[in-house]
Design a protein around this nucleic acid. Structure first.
Length: 486
RNA sequence: GGCCCCGUCGUCUAGAGGCCUAGGACAUCAGGUUUUCAUCCUGAAGAUCGCGGGUUCGAAUCCCGCCGGGGUCACCA
């Protein structure tokens, strides 16, 4: 049987990074088994709908380098893939359940429900449950209400004294007592289905074989299994994944600590492949010591058996940052340059590169990349490559003890460098010549090179001085040195 | 509170009864390379495997109890 997985985002906001982790696993499992990965839009809550969020969610999935096999924009054999366009299907199924005796119409008003819950809480009940008031309404009354178009929902008629066994692939058998299960609403009074109905009907119709989801869904899984059973359908495999939490607490991810939406990480200058690589290990590992994984390698090695059983996993932003730096350091530098420029363009980030050519940007990048943790760092550490630096004279003089000595060093290096031709202006060459000059004049390397560094960049921390000189170019270097000779 | 899930270094994790004097990675610290910063290399510290009982010649690995953490109890997903 073909493996078919799905991710079901709802257009109520931006795609959450945790949802992207689930998506990644869904995708990998489908690909690994030559199956299909489906995106389905769960837009059944009209009150929380956020304009444009679905488009942004689909865009960001693509930005992370993942494409679905069936779903919105591209369609497929089970279209439409937007639940709001499938209302008739859910209504038909809800009615089928009622006809079969597994569901019933409920005319209770929200007010009555709220009052009921309040009373239950007041009386110290262990939990609030629907009192099943409408379960045994006389058929005539139901007919009358229906004819009079009284607002109503359809509820699941949960059987008494039964046992429902969830066979979770990572957690094993989980047994639920049906006496603990509420008569969940399946069809809302506005005609829209709830998640329970819509997701199960669609999972069945779309032939989903494996449902990967957050462990927070586990408590409602008996309702889902009961729905499947009521229709007489074959159950998919359920896999509940650990949720993500913020480091140092047991709280869910929060904007207080950084990005939370998938798109925000990209915007903050994280590379998609680094984020993905980091996400892969939040609940999974290959059982080897390999931890640098491309998406392709991941889809090859991914297996459900290696999923982590724990219920909460810390989202270590420092490790994400390390991954990002690793990818920045190890990617082809031309590629990285293109990515940097594209990124700045897309997110309107001012890199301070003025109108310099991409080639120049790449040269700068090559010199500074190992100092970058995110793309965002570029502008901060490269300003002097694009603009004349502001040199702090005090700081400069301090390197040599007094102004006379400092000026002497800079003057002599200026004279020396004037003799180097444009053709010979390469770091290896500059290195050789300058070191010879150093010994010939008895200058201390540290003081001399710090003088040059500060004069050229205004900074005390830069790439190796000859790398910097090569990138800056002959004219610029000589100009900057002369600016310090007074 | 009821129900359900989970519990190995600070963090992500390896570990499926003897390979464990519990391994790797991030973070931390120290040394090395070096003209600065960073990278890189080497090393150190860091987990009595939540606790307590069993079972066994032998348990992080199996069983029981406890404790701790989390999830969930909506006409939200």
């Amino acid at each position: 049987m073909e493996v078919r997985t799905r991710i079901a985002p709802s257009p109520t906001g931006e795609l959450h990074i945790g949802h992207l982790r689930t998506l990644l696993y869904d995708y990998a499992y489908a690909k690994k088994n030559n199956g299909k990965f489906i995106v389905r839009v769960e837009d059944t809550d009209r009150t929380r709908f956020v304009e444009g969020s679905m488009d942004r969610t689909l865009d960001v999935i693509i930005d992370y380098g993942i494409m679905w096999d069936e779903g919105p924009r591209i369609g497929g054999p089970h279209e439409p893939y937007e639940q709001s366009k499938r209302l008739g299907i859910y209504k038909k199924h809800a009615e089928e359940l009622v006809a079969k005796g597994h569901g019933y119409y409920c005319f209770c008003t929200p007010e009555r429900l709220e009052k009921m819950r309040e009373e239950q809480r007041a009386s110290g009940a262990p939990k609030t449950v629907y009192d099943r008031h409408c379960r045994n309404l006389p058929p005539e009354e139901v007919e009358k209400n229906l004819a009079n178009k009284v607002r109503h929902v359809v509820r699941l008629k949960v059987p008494a004294d039964e046992t429902v066994v969830l066979n979770d692939l990572v957690h094993g058998e989980v047994v639920f007592d049906t006496n603990e299960i509420d008569d969940a609403v399946l069809l809302k009074s506005d005609g829209y289905p709830t998640y329970h109905l819509a997701a199960m009907v669609d999972d069945h119709l779309m032939e989903i074989t494996h449902v990967l989801r957050g462990i927070d869904w586990m408590p409602s899984s008996p309702v889902h299994m009961l729905i499947y059973k009521s229709f007489g359908w074959e159950l998919p495999v359920f896999v509940h994944l650990p949720n993500l939490k913020e480091m140092g607490s047991n709280q869910k991810l929060s904007k207080r600590f950084g990005a939370v939406a998938a798109v925000d990480f990209l915007q903050d200058g994280f590379l998609a492949e680094a984020v993905l690589n980091f996400l892969m290990f939040l609940g999974w590992n290959p059982g080897t010591e390999k931890e640098i994984y491309s998406l392709e390698e991941f889809t090859n090695d991914f297996s459900l058996e290696k999923l982590q059983k724990t219920d909460l996993v810390a989202f270590d932003r420092e490790k994400l940052t390390w991954y990002n730096g690793y990818y920045i350091r190890n990617m082809d530098v031309k590629m990285l340059g293109e990515r940097l420029l594209d990124w700045a363009e897309i997110y309107s980030v001012d890199l301070g590169t003025k109108d310099r050519s991409p080639d120049y940007v790449i040269k700068v990048l090559e010199a500074v990349r190992e100092r970058m943790k995110t793309l965002m760092d570029f502008a901060d550490i490269t300003a002097y490559f694009f603009d004349k630096p502001k040199v702090d004279r005090e700081m400069l003089i301090k390197q040599s003890g007094d102004e006379g000595r400092m000026t002497g060093i800079i003057t002599s290096f200026n004279e020396l460098l004037t003799t180097v031709s444009y053709d010979d202006w390469r770091k290896d060459n500059l290195d050789r010549i300058c070191h010879a000059h150093l010994t010939a004049n008895n200058y201390k390397p540290k003081e001399a090179f710090m003088n040059l560094r500060i004069a050229l960049s205004g900074e005390t921390a830069t790439p190796p001085i000859f790398d910097t000189m090569e990138v800056l170019g002959r004219n610029e270097v000589l100009e900057r040195l002369r600016a310090q000779i007074r």
